[in-house]
């Protein structure tokens, strides 16, 4: 083609790539905030039931993970996440969804090479880099403060 430049074309394409970012931010903030409020509610409830602070935190995470997995299985999570975006992905709910959804998807290839092998296909990087960065942070803390973080 004559008069065709990749650079100009990519500039033209970028004019058509407009995301409704204000709306996305609003919903991410609202839904993400509500999930955190729900977490605080569960935490306070668990503490009031007499659980120690750390156990109450575990109960909160487990409850949110359970509901996230359940709603993924029921086909509701992705419909909410479509609007909420980062609001559902960033809290622990997003992590649960990222594990449950491929487990469901790859069930057709069997429980070992399907569910087992593909379960962490989305969440795998989060685990790898989450654990790696926590080790690095721990090392830095150890070297700077000269002791184990408590």
């Amino acid at each position: 083609m004559k008069n065709f430049s990749e650079k100009n074309y990519q500039k033209l394409v970028s004019q058509h790539e407009k995301s409704p970012w204000l709306k996305n931010i609003f919903w991410a903030f609202t839904v993400g905030g509500l999930i955190c409020v729900l977490g605080e509610f569960i935490l306070t409830y668990a503490k009031n039931m007499g659980l120690p602070k750390e156990d109450a935190g575990c109960v909160t995470s487990m409850t949110l993970i359970f509901f996230s997995g359940l709603f993924t299985g029921l086909g509701i999570f992705d419909k909410l996440a479509k609007h909420a975006g980062a609001g559902t992905i960033v809290p622990i709910t997003g992590f649960a969804n990222a594990v449950v959804s491929p487990a469901m998807e790859f069930k057709s290839e069997g429980f070992i090479l399907g569910v087992g092998a593909k379960m962490f296909v989305v969440a795998g990087p989060v685990i790898v880099y989450g654990v790696s960065s926590s080790i690095i942070c721990g090392l830095i803390y150890y070297l700077v403060k000269g002791g184990m973080p408590l």
Binding site: S19, L80, K82, T88, I89, N97, S101, M104
Partner: peptide, 17 residues
């Protein structure tokens, strides 16, 4: 979707494009 993108129930956002 499962070959090129994400599992069906994954809660991602699709851009307008």
């Amino acid at each position: 979707e499962r070959q090129f993108r994400f599992p069906l129930e994954y809660g991602g956002q699709r851009p307008p494009t």
